[in-house]
Design a protein around this nucleic acid. Structure first.
Lengths: 189, 189
DNA sequence: GCGTGATGTAAGTGCTTTTCACATGAGCTG
DNA sequence: CAGCTCATGTGAAAAGCACTTACATCACGC
């Protein structure tokens, strides 16, 4: 799995071949078939491990919502982008390897766990808002994820289909967050 | 190129093999090499054609900003999602085929043209806002793109790594747009 | 009439994925 | 300790793909 992850980092998901991963692990090309049904299952396992690390990173960024929900939420956004930048292979395996999340139950579970961190943070954030006009927390979580993923996928990583943009992805996401929260009427001005 | 597009629709970008595309076009596996240097160049051409169609779809949605910038902008957002849903193969070729946008000059140009539609719409939208506190149009365009892409990639298409969400992608994007525009102080309440 | 360039084919190389029969070695059981 | 089982690994093989090279065809302009 580590060899496969390295290969994704070096050559992209298409270049991560089963045979080469086995070679790097020092075994014959047939050996990994004792552990993974096929190439797709290997990639699913790599992606699931990535989601686990991702959930940890988000949780660390959120840090229980301290010192206050709004700043912790924004810090979690930075953690999101940091993860995409510092673990591009994981991120690619998770979102761009062509493996449907539903394919593997373990993968699906890991992805749900990662989103759960985001959802709970959104719930805390929403709970801190004035009661009237309080938006649905799940919607806020989905919006946050879509925004963070969009920024990461389009402008975040250096190697991929990145576009030249006049501002760094971090600032772009932070600005979007602040505008969005202001639109919600959140205490974040 | 049509055969390759069909293959992407049926089997995903990894399943779109050069040989099979040639077979479907009724020629030998070597024939396409007269027209494309390698598999990557074929996919880049397919993606470029997709960006052209995409730019047309966005332009049609924007419709010159009529009747007013805010509603036209939102309609363009719907056009974005409609395109991702109705032309999933194009969208996959454009954003998830692993082809870096910089690889091919024609691809890059087509992508820039599509983003140009979005950028001009954002400029018009921003120009309609009160002069003081007017945000940079480019930033608004990038935010819009990131949001729309995030929603499309995560929740938009039926086949891909879509998650079960309690609300349709259209509504999700529309709500996010409205909240974002409200945060900007735009005339969209 | 004849070169020329665009297009296509057949065959071949080296890579991949996947399977199958067989080896090996650790650990449990009697 | 013998024997059995199970996990793990190997080598060989089939099938498919990307890509190359040498050769064929054929329309078109001079």
């Amino acid at each position: 799995m580590q060899a496969a992850l390295d290969l994704i980092a070096e050559r992209g998901p298409a270049g991560a071949t089963f045979a080469e991963a086995a070679r790097r692990a020092g075994v014959s090309p047939a050996a990994p078939y004792r552990h993974f049904r096929d190439r797709e299952e290997l990639l699913a396992a790599v992606a699931a491990a990535g989601f686990d690390r991702f959930a940890e990173a988000l949780k660390a960024g959120w840090n229980g919502g301290r010192p206050d929900a709004a700043s912790a939420y924004e810090r979690m956004g930075h953690a999101y982008l940091d993860f995409a930048r510092q673990h591009p292979a994981d991120y690619v395996a998770m979102f761009e390897s062509g493996i449907p999340t539903e394919a593997d139950p373990a993968l699906r579970q890991a992805a749900d766990r990662a989103f759960g961190v985001l959802r709970e943070a959104a719930e805390t954030l929403v709970a801190a808002m004035p009661a009237q006009g309080r938006p649905p927390a799940l919607m806020v979580a989905l919006h946050t994820w879509a925004l963070a993923h969009g920024v990461a996928a389009l402008f975040g990583r250096a190697d991929a289909a990145r576009r030249k943009v006049p501002m760094p992805a971090d600032d772009l996401l932070e600005a979007a967050f602040l505008i969005y929260l202001k639109g919600l009427g959140a205490p974040a001005a």
